[in-house]
Amino acid sequence: MRKPIFLLVSAIVFLYFSVILFLLSPIHESGNVYYGNNYIGPLGLRLVPSVNWCKELHWRSPPLPYPVALVSYPGSGNTWLRYLLQQVTGVLTGSIYMDFGLKVHGFPAENVTDGSVLVVKTHEAPPLEPDKFKSAVLLIRNPRDAILADFNRLHKGHIGTAPKSAFKKRSRERKRTDWSAYVAIQLKTWETLHDLWLTKFPGTAYIVFYETLVKDTKNTLQGILNFLNYTFTENDMDCALTHKEGIYRRIKKLQDFDPFTQDMYRQIEIVKRRVINNIRKYRKMHNETDILELL
């Protein structure tokens, strides 16, 4: 009698700690993959963190009297930009969320939302409290790529890629695939998020395009840091660029199919044009140069 009870208790304990370790992993990937020099096992657990920081991470001193938002639609490179900013400045970045995997792998200020951090990650609409954020960095990515990236994250974690079957799955009650329903909903979400920050946010928003951040990382980071009124050295920037890939960029995997239909592309273009018009209006209102690097 004791042996079955012992085995049951052991199984429960093992399951409990497996779940905890899974939550602490930055990559919830079911298969075995290699990333950097670190092996990722069957549970998706990174055995050795591979973040090499240019300088020891620290709180912003003195802290700002208010936090600065780092706003984006999910899948737009928010975590990668946080990583780059921490590399250049050594200052921690915060988040309105608590991602345990990020917390133990390079972002210990998860769930910190005050001026002691450089910026605060959010995927939400502007807060109702007018004093919550006085300014914001608005990171915008092509909706096609952002929606696809977030779909991959939902299925395979921070750097995984959703299998082909995930795009073809359909619920019994639905006539169309879950993927097509997802694209329709998320495209509206993508548009609404950006429009709210461009038209309803009372503070100043600095617009950054993910595509430009990839193509011209140095100048894009310089622009953000100037907006944040943060001084850095050329050595700081050089070190950050040397380590710019980090561990939180999804490795591009060539697919043998395009999950987007022609109708989806038409809807994406319509939404893009509307958001681009709002960006132009915002920049004209703030006497900024109308350069659209988007898409």
Results as ranks from 00 to 15, higher is better:
S171I: 04
S171L: 12
S171W: 04
R172I: 04
R174L: 05
R176P: 00
R176H: 04
R176M: 04
T177Q: 03
W179F: 04
W179A: 12
A181I: 08
V183P: 07
A184G: 07
I185P: 00
L187F: 10
T189F: 03
W190A: 14
W190K: 15
E191S: 15
T192A: 13
T192N: 14
L193P: 07
H194A: 09
D195S: 06
L196T: 03
L196D: 04
L196A: 11
W197H: 05
L198G: 01
T199N: 06
K200H: 06
F201Q: 11
P202E: 13
G203M: 11
T204E: 08
A205G: 02
A205L: 06
Y206Q: 06
Y206F: 05
I207Q: 06
I207N: 02
V208C: 10
F209K: 10
F209L: 07
Y210N: 11
Y210E: 02
E211L: 06
E211R: 11
L213Y: 05
L213H: 06
V214T: 08
K215N: 09
K215Y: 01
K215S: 13
K215V: 10
K218G: 11
N219P: 00
N219Q: 10
N219C: 02
T220N: 08
T220R: 08
L221V: 02
L221T: 09
Q222F: 03
Q222M: 07
Q222I: 02
Q222K: 15
I224N: 13
I224Y: 09
I224F: 11
I224H: 15
I224W: 13
L225Q: 09
N226P: 00
N226Y: 14
F227G: 08
F227M: 03
L228Y: 12
N229A: 10
Y230D: 09
T231Q: 12
T231E: 09
F232E: 12
T233L: 07
T233P: 04
T233R: 13
N235V: 09
D236P: 03
M237R: 05
D238T: 09
D238G: 13
C239A: 14
A240Q: 07
L241P: 01
T242I: 03
E245V: 05
E245M: 13
G246Y: 07
I247D: 14
Y248P: 00
Y248K: 15
R249G: 06
R249K: 14
R250C: 03
I251G: 10
I251S: 11
I251Y: 13
K252D: 06
K252I: 02
K253P: 01
L254D: 15
L254S: 15
Q255R: 15
D256Y: 05
D258E: 13
P259M: 08
F260G: 03
Q262F: 07
D263T: 14
M264P: 00
Y265T: 03
Y265C: 09
R266H: 12
R266Q: 12
Q267I: 00
Q267C: 01
I268R: 12
E269S: 14
I270Q: 14
I270T: 14
V271E: 03
R273C: 08
R273P: 00
R274Q: 07
R274Y: 00
V275M: 01
I276Y: 01
